[in-house]
Amino acid sequence: MHPAFSIIFFTTASGLGYGLAAMLGLGVLDPASLSTGIAYLLALGLIGAGLLSSTLHLGNPQRAWRALTQWRSSWLSREGVMAILTFIPLVVSAWAALFERSYLPLPGVIGAVLCAITVYCTAMIYASLKSVQAWGTRLTPVCYLLFAAAGGATLATFFALCGAGAVRSMAFAAIVLIAAAWIAKLRWRDRLLAMEPLSTPESATGLGSIGKVALLERPHVTENYLTREMGFRIARKHAAKLARLAFGLGGIVPVLLLVAILVAGQGAISIVAAILAVLSFGCGILVERWLFFAEARHAVMNFYGQ
């Protein structure tokens, strides 16, 4: 599948934003601190930027509001509806944190739950597509949810260091969540690598009863929408390397930095370590999302000899 940058950026940014918003909603940071208010602004900014970016790949973005109508059948529509609903408790909580310096448990918890549901809907857009076998597993939403939570906890550790809370417990939670996310993700990728293709050129053409089917000629000599959209292969060539890079940047580096914070506690060095952990995690997730698309094979490619 073609990894559209707008979609990769959207899932990464909104994942981090919803993760942080969920942590804030659970009240893990001290509402009396200004940094909690800034954390709210960052969460809303990441979510907003992600949602805006997701409209960039649309052919007719001016009609994007129509995407809110088909929540009965479409996960993409559900995602849109949930994203807007989630804004309500998040804005209320952010207001309370910024201007009242208080934590409101009810909007907080509702916001955290809605954040999780929105991320789940995003993942289900992919997991519900039978035509892309690599995505069709319960592990897909598990990975999306755990990565969002892990990113949120890492960001929350940074804000805890800025004076808003219990640094060590936050850093410990982030380590646990990053580890859990990567355990799920590695199982997801093992499944991908071990997978027997559901559809083959034989089943796609129905000619398997005669023999082995191979493409002789494409419909047109040049690329088309389908081969560009479903047949992207650049990253697949370097898949193993990129997978290691994603694991290193998104898993090992932030965990080591978080362990250092756990040991060092409060302090300037810890703040630098937290910033590096967030940046490294973000880059790792960008690579992970790139691979999520680039490594997934679409059934239509059985007609194109790929």
């Binding site: 050129p201 000619l207 005669i210 023999g211 082995k212 089917v213 493409l215 419909p219 007609f303």
Partner: peptide
């Protein structure tokens, strides 16, 4: 679109 396939009998 028309694709053309080669089928090799086994």
């Amino acid at each position: 679109r028309i694709h053309t396939f080669e089928v090799k009998p086994e």
